[in-house]
Write a protein that binds this DNA or RNA. Structure first.
Length: 926
RNA sequence: GCCGGAGUGGCGGAACAGGCAGACGCGCGCGACUCAAAAUCGCGUGGGCUUGGCCCAUGUGGGUUCGAUUCCCACCUCCGGCACCA
């Protein structure tokens, strides 16, 4: 009797043996090609989650695969050990964050070992070790020297629950919640430290050197948000420069007002006394509004005139200055020129507040519209219009005419002679013309003209006396509405010297024109903001800065690093940073003048730690630099990185930025930290929802290992879904992989029936088995390369099914059988390393299976001899015939036409067409 | 609103340079073993019908094609990201 499969016994045994033998130790070996395989490091929360297993075990399988393929693979692990939970635990339970963190790390190391992964533990790095964060400080100083770390006062996002500021990337979604705890953030005006990631905005948009998922690339691209346009300098009447950024310099002549962000620094100065009160009220309300997250979804525009005017530099037009919260201080210059005719938001604003609209770009349709109001024209006009070929419709006596822009003059001439005295009509198209019966044709081409037209209309018609602008007057005619606003790139009109410039040249020529006159220049603007790294918390890396009353802001000298986090601190129940009250930490001497000074008490965002951990892993004990350059020269950069998508615009952006700075510091000689990236999906609870303690749908890996063994858990995680998709956990489904392992156990260990063992297999039996063996190697190899772990396991299961059959035939025990078993075990080694090793060694093969070469397949052996020729009639399968692989087209057609099913449908007729797809099918078209 | 991704049996999922839809697994049904149950083994398992055969089936409706889960158009639903970005 074969002993049963007891993973609880064999798994710890092999884990210890592998570790004792150091078989996963990766050392620099210039003779072998290296492969740096990295998976995101966990936060030591206390317990390994099934999500960690889901992230790490398929990565481990692939790392093992590369190893078997002959690469020198480095697969390290560490802990992202600074952060809030440790500090919250301290406040709540009185345990020091250090103690809490290191105890958790100890526990998680044990749990990680139970995975049976090939981590090289001698490379482990823990980010809260002073020997780690010392280098965070060192990098900070380097950044500071280069002007890449700076302190500034700014309106920043603050999480009231975490009691600290956050980077823009760490505020999520429409509700603007804290990435960590989900609490809505508030704005605060604070002095904070920033890393100047915007200096690398352009380079960060270049993804040409990395193979990353399109999804991540798109998210980063959108996050950086590059737009091209021009900076234009407007001036207040008093001469203050007001710079705006616009992507549409070609619409400059249509700027009829300016809008500043409510918190724009010039507002204070420009506001006239009679508007001061109203402006301050608006500013107060706007600030409050952003705190309430503007939850009211009505996007109704609000704003306030500040009493001042600006001069449009292209036409000297005097335009009012407003403030409104739809202009953001954080984008561009915090001020805009408003072109209501060609910007939807400005249009809405202008209509609401009665600001003039001047069209300066011809509409894309090339059409114009005109309304002749009932009673404003004499008899015979309809006939005349018809005769002249103008299309129109009658609506309540009004005539609504749609004409080609080219016919504008002809139309005006015709209509004029029919207008009754004291009336007018409009032509709205490329420009808006007013045709007065007893006066000139007037064009809405400037603010003055707009005024004059409005006044004249009001004189003639009391009904329009309440209208504040021509646009408002025209808006009343629903027929005109689609022509009053558009944002197409088209021919410029009403634009002084540039009138007539075609759409495709408009932006470029206007920009050149601005540059000549020195009132503007081409500019690129980014949505990306600098990375706010200050955190008002204890459990993080102290920022190595000292404030001296004499010398100001002074960096701590390199040789004084690390600035140690003091141990003996008093916890504040509010979560307020205890460093601020730690006298010994706070008070220091100025490194420059030796006088009394005090330390910066903010600590760094923990994303600083994870921005370069892949380098520290190489030599976690090295003290001459952040890492040993010799190790770096061999292992870097990371060849394959795996982890969750949630870091797309945080960690994954920061680490790219960091690497580019390190390159500019001369520390690395490449541009990108991770050449290839793959994002796994998420394991959901059995109810299909995100796993959470409150839902009670959490799956604990320790229990699963206890019940099924690590190999089963690994195999199931790789089998149950596509890795990049993830899906709900199924406590029934895990039985499949467990049965698979038990079947393999018996398949390999239970002796073959002597009757079969002694019998000689037929050539056919041998050929069929070997074919399956080689086909399986091929499938598994391709699946492994493609991260298709689910079909990889499926292929192994299929192989198992075939072997179970074969074991009952004389092929069992043959050479082909041995080849099959050996192959099976080798292919299982990356997925289920323990059972593979156990069976490998038990069958007398040399330890360790994890030091064997990956099997190769022979195409000739893997090749099928026959295939199922599908016979279709009109595209529907009607018959199937097994035929040799090399069958000629002629022969295939013959077989198909001879098929009973085909003959019945043909019914003596000739087929219309016969389509032959080699190796697949014949389709008879009747 | 904009930008991505996805909709396939009872369930998880296979198969897409256009060519046998449902690999593999779970579950379920029947049978064997058992006093019995579990475990295990064998067989079956998309739906329907007038069942030696035929019809319908890959979110919905169209289209291209000899042939569409795969390509094109429109729409619906779900998930993710962004959201007054000038």
């Amino acid at each position: 009797m074969t002993d049963p499969y007891v993973p609880q016994e064999i798994e710890p045994k092999w884990q210890q043996r592998w570790e004792a033998d150091g078989i996963y130790r990766a050392v620099v070996d210039p003779d072998r090609p290296k492969f740096y395989y990295l998976t995101m490091l966990p936060y030591p929360s206390g317990d390994l989650h099934i999500g960690h297993w889901y992230a790490m075990t398929p990565s481990d399988a692939q790392a093992r695969y590369y190893r078997m393929r002959g690469y020198n693979v480095l697969f390290p692990m560490g802990f992202d050990a600074f952060g809030l939970p440790a500090e919250n635990a301290a406040i709540k339970h009185g345990i020091h964050p250090r103690e809490w963190t290191y105890a958790n790390i100890e526990r998680m190391r044990r749990q990680l070992r139970s995975m049976g992964a090939m981590f090289d533990w001698e490379r482990e790095a823990v980010t809260c070790d002073p020997e780690y964060y010392r280098w965070n400080q060192w990098f900070f100083l380097k950044f500071y020297e280069r002007g890449l770390a700076y302190r500034a006062r700014a309106a920043v996002d603050f999480c009231p629950s975490c009691n600290t500021t956050l980077a823009r990337e760490q505020v999520w979604g429409e509700e603007r919640v804290c990435e960590r705890c989900g609490t809505p953030v508030v704005k605060k005006d604070l002095e904070q430290w920033f890393f100047k990631i915007t200096a690398y905005a352009e380079e960060l948009l270049d993804f040409s050197q990395i193979e990353w998922p399109e999804r991540v690339v798109t998210m980063q691209r959108n996050w950086i948000g590059r737009s091209e346009g021009a900076d234009v300098i407007f001036r207040s009447e008093e001469g203050d420069e007001i710079e705006v950024f616009t992507t549409r310099p070609d619409t400059l002549w249509g700027a009829t007002f300016m809008v500043l962000a409510p918190e724009h620094p010039l507002v204070e100065k420009l506001t006239t006394p009679e508007y001061r009160e109203a402006v301050e009220a608006y500013q107060y309300q706007a600030a409050r509004q952003s705190e309430i997250q503007r939850l009211a979804l009505d996007k109704e525009k609000t704003g306030q005139f500040i009493g001042a005017y600006a001069i449009n530099p292209v036409n000297e037009a005097r335009i009012p200055i407003w403030i409104a919260d739809y202009v953001l201080m954080t984008y561009g210059t915090g001020a805009i020129m408003a072109v209501p005719a060609h910007d939807e938001r400005d249009f809405e604003f202008a209509l609401k507040f009665g600001l003039p609209v001047i069209p300066v770009i011809a509409p894309p349709s090339g059409q114009a519209k005109s309304v002749l109001r009932a009673g404003s024209y004499r008899e015979g006009l309809t006939e005349a219009l018809r005769e002249a070929g103008f299309a129109f419709e009658e609506a309540d006596g009004d005539l609504q005419v749609t004409l080609d822009e080219a016919d504008r003059e002809r139309y005006i001439a015709l209509v004029r002679s029919y207008l009754k005295p004291g009336t007018w009509t409009e032509v709205v198209g490329a420009g808006w013309a007013f045709v007065f019966a007893d006066g000139p044709v007037m064009n809405v081409g400037s603010i003055e003209e707009e005024r004059r037209i409005l006044e004249r209309c009001q004189e003639l018609d009391p009904a329009v006396q309440a209208k504040r602008t021509v646009a408002e007057l025209l808006w009343d005619q629903a027929f005109y509405r689609d022509l009053l606003f558009h944002d197409a790139y088209e021919r410029m009109i009403n634009s002084g010297p540039l009138t007539g410039t075609p759409g495709e040249e408009a932006v470029r020529r206007t920009t050149a024109w601005l540059e000549e006159r020195e009132v503007g220049k081409a500019a690129v603007n980014y949505r990306l903001r600098d990375w706010l790294i200050s955190r008002q918390r204890y459990w993080g890396t102290p920022i190595p800065i000292v404030y001296c009353p004499e010398c100001g802001t002074v960096p701590v000298p390199e040789e004084e690093l690390p600035v140690l986090l003091p141990e003996d601190v008093d916890w504040r129940p509010t979560g307020e940073n205890p460093l601020r009250y730690h006298e010994a930490f706070l008070h220091t001497t100025c490194p420059r003048c030796g006088g009394p000074a005090h330390r910066e008490t903010d600590t760094m965002d923990t994303f600083v730690d994870s921005s370069w951990y892949q380098y520290r892993y190489l030599s976690p004990d090295y003290d001459q630099g952040p890492w040993d350059p010799e190790e770096g020269a061999y292992w870097l950069p990371v060849d394959q990185y795996t982890g969750g998508i949630e870091h797309a615009t945080m960690h994954l952006l920061y680490t790219r930025f960091f690497t580019k700075v390190l390159r500019d510091l001369g520390l690395v000689d490449f541009d990108e930290p991770m050449l290839r990236l793959y994002n796994q999906g998420t394991v959901l609870g059995e109810d299909g929802e995100k796993m959470s303690k409150s839902r009670g749908n959490v799956v604990a890996p320790d229990d699963l290992v206890e019940q099924y063994g690590a190999d089963t858990v690994r195999a199931y995680l790789m089998f149950f879904a596509r890795w990049d998709q993830g899906g709900p956990w199924d406590s029934q489904g895990i039985k499949g992989p467990r049965r698979f392992l038990e079947d393999v156990w018996r398949l390999v260990l239970e002796p073959v029936d002597p009757a079969q063992a002694e019998a000689t297999p037929t050539e056919e039996q041998v050929r069929v088995l070997r074919r399956k063996t080689h086909q399986t190697i091929k499938r598994c190899t391709e699946d492994m390369e493609a991260f298709a772990f689910n079909t990889y396991v499926a292929a192994l299961m299929e192989f198992r099914n075939v072997l179970q059959e074969a074991k009952r035939t004389p092929v069992a025990g043959s050479e082909a059988w041995e080849e099959a078993i050996e192959t099976l075990l080798l292919l299982m080694a990356p997925i289920t390393p323990h059972i593979a090793e156990e069976l490998w060694v038990r069958t007398g093969r040399p330890y360790s299976i994890h030091q064997q070469r990956w099997p190769t397949w022979d195409e000739a052996i893997a090749a099928e001899e026959t295939f199922t020729l599908v016979i279709q009639v009109n595209g529907k399968v009607r018959d199937r015939v097994e035929v040799p692989v090399g069958i000629s087209e002629e022969k295939a057609r013959e077989i198909a036409l001879a098929s009973e099913a085909v003959r019945r449908r043909l019914n003596g007729r000739e087929p219309k067409r016969v389509i032959y797809v080699p190796g697949r099918l014949v389709n008879v078209v009747v």
